[in-house]
Design a protein around this nucleic acid. Structure first.
Lengths: 338, 338
DNA sequence: ATTTGGCACTCGACCGAGTTAAGTGCCAAT
DNA sequence: ATTGGCACTTAACTCGGTCGAGTGCCAAAT
C-alpha cells in the first residue's frame, strides 16, 4: 500500500510536469506546492516512487517525470473530476442547437471536443449494426439499374446501385419496395440477414434473379459497413506539442488517416470513460500517446465511441471531464431524436 | 528577354534545390549537371538571375535558392510534362475499379493523389449547383414529420427532416412526391428555386403550410450546400518536410481543417491545371506553400476541383502531371456513370 | 566580348573546453 | 522520521577558433 503522502507527491509531480513539460525536481516541488515538507524529505519519497516504477529520471542530474504507470495510478487513484469552466459548460450545452442531420451532429461534436480539450478529437459514427431500419427506398434509374437507399433510425442514409440481369418493370419495383419495407421496417440491422433469408421465395421465378441481386446489395449495406466510419478534428493541436517532432509526428498523423487504426484505438464500445496510457495500447507507433474515450448513444446500449488522443503528458482530469460531458450531451440529443 | 542559357541554369537550380533542400552553389551545379560551362560563368549568370529576382541567397556565403518568382518562371517556361512512372500510371488506371458510390470515388481519389504526389491531397465533392436532380423522395416518419431525400445525377444523396405544422396523410405525401418529381427530375440544382417558385399554388389552401415547409427545406438543400464539401488526405506527408516545424506547421494543419479556407484555396473551377506559388495566394499563413489544382467533371462543364498542397519547394512537374492525370481519369469515370 | 582561373573575403556550421545550474544521494544532526 | 549540508553528476549554455562552401571581382585567355 502506497502512503497517502507519497500519492500526494505523485500528484504534484504530474500536475507540474503537465503544466511545464519539464522534469520536476524536489526544490521547485516544495516551493510551488505547499506540502509542509522539506525538499530532502521529498527526495526520499521520490526515491521510493521511482523504485515502485511510477516516476523516472531522464538522466542522473535531472528532475523526475511520471512513467506510464505513474499516470495510470494518477488517473485511477488520485485525479478528481475537474469541473468544467463556465464557458466550456456553456459551449457544451449549446453546440448541437439547430443541428440538421446526423453528419452535422457528428461534425459539430468532433469540433467541439477538439476545441475544448485542445487535443485531437475522434468521433465514431453511430454504429449501423445496432440501429434499425427506418425505410428502404428503391428507385429505378434505368430499366436495368436500381438505386437502393437505406435509411436508419439514427438518421443515417446509405445508397448503392445495383445492376440487374433482366429488365424490371415499375410495378415489380413497387412490389419489391413494399415487401421489403413490410419485413424490414423497425428491424435491427444485424437481424436483417435473418429476416430476408427466404425473401426471394415470395417472388415468381422470373423475377428471382433480379430480386436476389437487390437483396444481396442490401445485405452488403447492413453488414459490410459494420466497419464503421470515424472522423477526426483538431490535428492542428498536435503542433502545440513541443516533443521531438519529426520522429513522433509522422506516425500519429498516419494513424489518424487510417479508419481501421482509429477504430481499434477507440476500442470496445462500453459505458463510462476509459483511459489508455502509452504502452497500454498496442500500436507500437503510438506509445507516447494516450487516449481518453467514452461510449455514447441511448442509455443502456451505447452505439459508438468518441474520444481524444494526445501526448501521455496531458491534462487527464480535464480531458476526462470534457469527454464524458460531451458524450452525455450527445447521447441525450440522439435519444430525443433531432 | 532572358537568355536560354540562363533559364537552363535556373532549371538546374530548381531541380537541385528540390532534390536536396540545400542552397545550391556554382561549383556543385557545374559538377552535377553537365552544362559545358565553368563555375565562374555560372556565378556571373547567377548574379543576373538574382538581379531579376528569380533566385536569392539566404546569407552572403551560401548558395542560391529559387524565389517564388523563380518557381513561377520555372513552371511557366521551363518545366516539361514529366511522364508518370509505370507504377503510377498503373495505379491511376485502376484505382476506381469497383468503386461503389460517390463517397467511395472521392475517397479513393484523394488517397491516390496523396500517395502518388507524396503531398497533402484535397478533393472537392462534385458541386451540387451544377448537377441535376435525379429523384426526390419523401418519406413520412410520423404524421407530423417528413424525411426528404434528394438524389442527384452525380450520385450524391442529401437528406433532411421537416417538422410539419399539421398532420399530412399518406395520400398527400404521395401527391407531393409525384408533383415534385414531375417538375424537378432532370433539372439542374441551381434552377430549382425558379422551378418551384409557384409550386405551392397547385395545392389546396389547407395543405399549403405543410407544402411550403417541405419546399423550403428542399430549397435549402439545393442552395445552402453550394458551400461545398472538401476532403483531405495525406497530412502525414507534411511530416516529411524538413522545414522549421512548429512555426510553419500549425497554420497548415489549421487551414486543412477549415472547409472554407480549402475551398478558397482550390479557387475557381476551370479547365486545365493551375499552380499557385507561395505569395501568389493571399492567405498570409500559407505563403510558403504552393497549390496545384485542376478542375474535373464532365467535359466542358467542370463541376469541382481537386489538387495538392505542399511546400513551395516541391516537384512541380511531377505534381502537375499527377494532378492532371488523376483529374482526367476521374472525369472520365464520372462521365460514364458508375 | 565572353569565358575562365585565381584569389581574397564572408559567414554559417562545427568542434572542444570551460562554466553554470539544477538536481540527486547520502550522511550526520535534530 | 525529518532536515540541512555537502559532494557529485550531467545536460545546457557560452566562448573562441577552425573549417569549408560559396561569393565577387579581376586579370588573363580565348
Amino acid at each position: 500500500m502506497i502512503a497517502d503522502r507519497r500519492l500526494e507527491i505523485l500528484r504534484a509531480i504530474v500536475d507540474d510536469y503537465v503544466a511545464t513539460n519539464e522534469p520536476v525536481g524536489s526544490k521547485v516541488l516544495a516551493a510551488r506546492h505547499s506540502l509542509g515538507i522539506s525538499p530532502a524529505t521529498i527526495r526520499n519519497e521520490m526515491a521510493l516512487l521511482e523504485e515502485e516504477g511510477l516516476i523516472s529520471q531522464p538522466h542522473t542530474s535531472a528532475g523526475r517525470i511520471p512513467t506510464d504507470l505513474g499516470y495510470r495510478v494518477f488517473v485511477d487513484r488520485i485525479s478528481t473530476v475537474k469541473p468544467l469552466s463556465a464557458p466550456e459548460r456553456r459551449a457544451i450545452d449549446h453546440f448541437l442547437e439547430g443541428a440538421v442531420d446526423l453528419d452535422d451532429v457528428v461534425n459539430r461534436t468532433v469540433r467541439l471536443l477538439a476545441q475544448v480539450t485542445k487535443q485531437v478529437a475522434i468521433v465514431q459514427y453511430p454504429s449501423l449494426s445496432k440501429s434499425a431500419v427506418r425505410h428502404i427506398e428503391i428507385l429505378p434509374l434505368t430499366p436495368m439499374r436500381l438505386m437502393i437507399v437505406l435509411i436508419t433510425d439514427t438518421g443515417r442514409v446509405e445508397q448503392r446501385i445495383v445492376e440487374l440481369a433482366n429488365q424490371m418493370s415499375e410495378a415489380h419495383v413497387a412490389k419489391l419496395r413494399s415487401q421489403l419495407n413490410l419485413l424490414c421496417a423497425g428491424e435491427k440491422l444485424n437481424l436483417i440477414p435473418n429476416t430476408l433469408k427466404s425473401f426471394t421465395e415470395k417472388f415468381e421465378p422470373t423475377e428471382r434473379t433480379n430480386v436476389t441481386s437487390a437483396v444481396n446489395v442490401i445485405l452488403e449495406m447492413t453488414i459490410e459497413r459494420s466497419e464503421e466510419k470515424v472522423i477526426v478534428s483538431g490535428t492542428a493541436n498536435l503542433a502545440r506539442i513541443p516533443s521531438d517532432f519529426p520522429t513522433s509526428f509522422h506516425p500519429i498523423l498516419e494513424a489518424l488517416e487510417e479508419q481501421v487504426v482509429l477504430l481499434h484505438l477507440l476500442g470496445e464500445t462500453a459505458d463510462g470513460t476509459k483511459v489508455k496510457i502509452g504502452h497500454e495500447q498496442d500500436n507500437t507507433n503510438l506509445q507516447s500517446t494516450s487516449i481518453v474515450t467514452s461510449g455514447y448513444g441511448p442509455e443502456g446500449e451505447r452505439v459508438a465511441n468518441l474520444g481524444i488522443i494526445g501526448p501521455t503528458r496531458m491534462d487527464y482530469s480535464g480531458s476526462m471531464s470534457a469527454v464524458s460531458a460531451v458524450a452525455r450531451y450527445v447521447s441525450r440529443f440522439l435519444e430525443e431524436g433531432f
